[in-house]
Structures are given as structure tokens and as C-alpha cells.
Design a protein around this nucleic acid. Structure first.
Lengths: 223, 223
DNA sequence: GTCTATAAATAGATAGAC
DNA sequence: GTCTATCTATTTATAGAC
């Protein structure tokens, strides 16, 4: 569990000169918090529960983080930074626009697998209406939209794409991916309740499908 | 604020012979609870807050509902029942398969507008992995998928549709719609933070876009 | 760095007057 | 039906020993 811990912790006022053992317990807390916050949400997750999941006691959490709210925001920021960086990378790579779209979709999936807490936490923040987010985080959250807009513009200038709405394209890409990754647990439960289909859905099929729809749209085959 | 209250309340053990005034306060509580649960989630919403939003006191909530959890489940059930009924209606109407798809998308949007708490609450339940839902609710939640499957099958038999995966089609329809309606507040905030686009997205454009993509897919124009 | 014990605040639920 | 006051459990956060 590597994450962008070091980057985040220096930024959020952690102790720079601490030992390896501390880092270890800090990592365990961070990882446990990400899992629990994703599964239950901020309010429903008690500090005691995070401590138990990290196989530590509550006091250790307050030793590493100022408060539950700060811990939550650090998990959020790590996530938005990492996702933003990867998506930006896909949009900035040196390939034709259509391949950039494909890379964007793949990058989103890769990130959702590296940080399984990301899709559910993103869902929760959307439902919250961004009430607890600062302006900087809005910027990180908007990277997906900006990257897609840049790719569309480039493709249109090159004559490869029709000028479709970046917002609609964004919704058609990001929403199905978020839903697929955020709903792993629910789909298994629904399948166990007797509904055929949900649990069998495969990651690669979803990625390929979203890529095809996006390209089809951009190349004017859907209309 | 009508909702399917009567249907729900009889089912969940309310008092059948109560007066009009009671119905009124019960309705206010139900509506306030739906708003607050949608905006903050179950754990973050205190009973006091619901009472204040309903302009009543806490004791009145326990007069009408056995517990906070029961109140939450009634809001959920009302929502799943209503959405399920409307989607089933779209799938069962007497029009060609392609129009059924269009009606399905429109019905989803109409329901999201009649019950603005539905998209955010659905998002939260997905993130929760359906941990607090019973098997009956899984069934209601799966109505969307079943309806889409039925429409696809009918279209394929009639030779109008390609046999594409109902799960992928479902994701491509439901996910963008849920995201659009659940993100009203967030999109306004992001726009105010300086990102152009999110707040200007129009309901009719989203509906039309999702309809076109779905039909394009089913008629084999995307590939 | 890590722990146990505890203070202080909050929130779900009920009692009982009107 | 509606209210105020309160009981009780939970939870955030800290104190202080090791």
C-alpha cells in the first residue's frame, strides 16, 4: 500500500523527522481509514473502528492525525491528486486523440483498481454536494473534465472528431466506470438474491465498451 | 409532496385510523427526512435535524416512526417502489422497442425530478454495498436491469436490435442519469470555483444524449 | 511510539405534561 | 397530536503511564 503518502503528509503538516515504525503505523491507519470511509462514509465510521481495522488503538490515530476530519481529508486529497495526475498523463501523452480517449478510460480503471476506495468515496462526495470540499479540491475533481475537453478540442482541430459536448462525453465515460467499480459489492449481493447478470460483468468488457462508445460518438457514428 | 405514502405506511405498520392533522405532520417528517438523508446520508443526519427541517420536535418523529432506521427504510422503499413502477411502465407500454428505450430514459428523469432525493440516496446505497438492504429491496433495485433486459430481448426477436449486453446498456443509461441528477449541487459549486461548463448542462440535453447513444448501440451504429 | 482510562459532547430514544 | 425535559449509549478527543 504505497499511495502518495509522503507527498500528502508533508503538505498536511506531519512530522518530517519521524522513524520507520511511525511510518508503518501511519500507513496502516491511512489504508484502514480509506477502506472504512469508502465502505461506510465519514459519519458512520468511528475512529475506534478505523483503529481496530488498522490493528492499533484510537490514541495512535490522534498521534498521527489531528482529527478524524483531517484524516478523511487526507485520504480524499491523496485520491484526487493521484487520479488527477494519472488522467492528466493520459491526456498529455504523445498519441492520436482517439488513443488518448482510450488511454483516459484505461487510466481511470487502473486508478480505481489501485485505490478501490476511490469510486465509492467519489460517489459519496457527489451525493454530499461537495459541502466539505475546499476550492482546491474542486479543481482536482475537475481535472477529468478538463482533460476530456482538451482531448476533444485537439481532435476537432485535427479534423478527426466532431465537436460534441465535453460534459456529455465526460458523463458517458466517468459515470459508467464509477458505477461499475463502486458497485462490486452490491452487484454480488443482487446476484445472490437471484438476479442473473450483475456479478458476471467483467472489468475489461466495461472498459472496452466505454472506449467504443466514446470513440463512436466522437467520430460521428452514433448521431 | 404526495409520494406513495399511504401504500408504504400501511405496509410498514402505521396507524390506519388516524386523523388528517397526523397525516400532515407525518408527511412533513417524511419529506424532510428524504431531503436530509439525501443531502447528508443516514449516519450524518440527526433526528433533531430532521425534526427542525420538518418544523416539529423530535418526539413527533418517534410518534410516527418506530426509529430513525425505520424512517430511513421507509423513504428507501417508497423510492424503490416508485422508480420501479415507473420503469416497469415504460418497458410494458405498447410501442416499438426503440421507443420503449426512449421512454425508459425519460421515465428515469421524470422520477429523479419527482423525488430529487432518489439519485443521491441511490449513490449512497451503492457505495454502502447494499449492506442495509433486504432481499426484497434488491429485487426493486434490479427492476431497471430487468426492464432493460426485456426491451433488448424483444427488440432482438423483432430483428430491430443487435444482441448487446443488457448490463452494459444499463450502465450506459442509468449511470449518466444518476450522475447528472445527483450532482446538481456539486456542479454549481465547481462552476463557482472557476471551471466552465458543469452548471450549464441541461436536463433535456442529457436525456436526449443518453437516448441517442442507447439507440445507436442497439441498432449497431457504434461498434 | 504505543497503550489504557477517562473526560466531554452528541445523538437516539422515552417519559410524561398539556 | 404535540411539546419539554431527560435518560442512556456512543463517540470524539485527550491525559498520562510505559
Amino acid at each position: 500500500m504505497k499511495l502518495t503518502k509522503r507527498l500528502v503528509s508533508t503538505r498536511a503538516g506531519a512530522r518530517p523527522g519521524r522513524q520507520a515504525t511511525s511510518d508503518h503505523s501511519r500507513d496502516r491507519i491511512f489504508a484502514a481509514a480509506a477502506r472504512e470511509f469508502a465502505a461506510r462514509g465519514f459519519a458512520a465510521t468511528s475512529v475506534d473502528r478505523i483503529a481496530a481495522a488498522a490493528r492499533l488503538n484510537k490514541a495512535m490515530i490522534y498521534y498521527h492525525f489531528k482529527s478524524k476530519a483531517v484524516l478523511y481529508r487526507e485520504v480524499l486529497r491523496d485520491m484526487f491528486d493521484a487520479v488527477g495526475a494519472r488522467l492528466r498523463g493520459a491526456a498529455a501523452s504523445d498519441v492520436p486523440p482517439a488513443d488518448k480517449i482510450r488511454q483516459f478510460v484505461e487510466a481511470f480503471a487502473v486508478e480505481a483498481e489501485a485505490r478501490p476506495h476511490f469510486p465509492p468515496m467519489w460517489f459519496r462526495e457527489i451525493a454530499d454536494g461537495g459541502t466539505h470540499l475546499d476550492e482546491a479540491t474542486f479543481g482536482s475533481m475537475a481535472v477529468a473534465l478538463k482533460s476530456i475537453t482538451a482531448i476533444v478540442d485537439e481532435g476537432v482541430r485535427a479534423g478527426a472528431f466532431k465537436p460534441i459536448s465535453p460534459m456529455l462525453l465526460h458523463a458517458g465515460i466517468v459515470a459508467p466506470l464509477l458505477l461499475f467499480f463502486a458497485s462490486v459489492g452490491l452487484r454480488q449481493r443482487i446476484e445472490r438474491a437471484g438476479v442473473k447478470g450483475p456479478a458476471a460483468l467483467k472489468r475489461d468488457d466495461v472498459v472496452a465498451h466505454v472506449q467504443r462508445v466514446a470513440i463512436g460518438l466522437l467520430e460521428g457514428r452514433v448521431v
